[in-house]
Amino acid sequence: MSRTPQEIFESYVYAGALTRNADALAENFTEDALFEAPLMPVGAAFPRRMVGREEIRSVMAAYYEQQVEGDRSPNLEKSGHVLHTTSDPDVFIAEIDTVFDGDGTDATVSLVQIFRLRDEKIARLRDYFAPELMS
């Protein structure tokens, strides 16, 4: 049975943003996958470009181990997303608004991700978000 874009997206988000499990995250990608964050400046804490499942696994494991000042978990009840399918069944776009609870105030992070699939795995992911959010 084939996985839907929704199922693929949920698996990716659970492994990455929610559990920060680099092994599980990497398993969502093809062996030769390309993961890009084109708005990230060179040398930023969050990687700008990763090529291949194993590089995604190792780079994201190192990133997840970093302690981020003010690191907060997303509030799933307040957060939301919309998936847009395209005329190409292997391409979908995610519009995401993630809300982080704060000390009396919420912070919302909005981003767009473009997924290109092959054999129900992510072959290319372009993640567009404001770089200052990851510093």
Score class of each variant (00 low, 15 high):
M1S: 08
M1D: 15
S2L: 05
S2T: 09
S2N: 15
E7C: 06
I8H: 02
E10A: 06
E10W: 08
S11K: 12
S11M: 06
Y14C: 14
Y14K: 08
A15F: 06
A15E: 04
A17Q: 10
L18C: 12
L18H: 12
L18A: 13
N21F: 01
N21T: 13
N21K: 14
N21R: 08
A24Y: 05
A24M: 15
L25Y: 02
L25K: 01
A26D: 05
E27D: 04
E27K: 12
T30L: 15
T30W: 10
E31W: 15
E31H: 14
E31G: 07
D32R: 13
D32Q: 12
D32V: 13
A33K: 00
F35S: 03
F35L: 04
M40W: 01
P41R: 13
P41A: 14
G43Q: 05
A44Y: 03
A44Q: 02
F46S: 07
F46P: 07
F46I: 08
F46T: 02
P47R: 00
P47G: 01
P47H: 02
R48Y: 00
R48N: 06
R48H: 02
R49P: 10
M50S: 05
M50I: 11
G52K: 09
R53N: 07
R53M: 11
E55W: 00
E55R: 01
E55D: 05
I56Q: 03
R57A: 06
V59S: 09
V59H: 07
Y63W: 06
Y63M: 04
E65A: 04
Q66F: 11
Q67K: 07
V68A: 09
V68H: 06
E69Q: 11
G70D: 04
D71M: 10
R72N: 15
N75A: 14
N75Y: 01
E77K: 09
E77Y: 07
K78Q: 13
H81M: 05
H81S: 07
H81I: 00
L83G: 11
H84M: 14
H84L: 13
T85V: 14
T85E: 14
S87V: 03
S87E: 07
S87M: 13
D88A: 07
P89T: 13
P89H: 15
D90R: 07
D90T: 08
V91H: 06
I93G: 01
A94R: 01
E95A: 04
I96N: 10
I96A: 04
D101E: 10
D103I: 04
D103E: 15
G104S: 11
T105V: 12
D106N: 10
D106I: 09
A107T: 12
T108C: 12
T108L: 05
V109H: 08
S110Y: 11
L111H: 00
L111F: 01
V112I: 05
F115H: 03
F115K: 04
R116Y: 15
R116L: 10
R116P: 02
L117I: 00
L117M: 10
R118Y: 08
R118M: 06
D119K: 14
E120S: 03
K121L: 04
R126Y: 09
R126L: 15
D127G: 09
F129R: 03
F129Q: 09
P131H: 11
E132T: 11
M134Q: 06
M134Y: 10
M134T: 06
S135G: 08
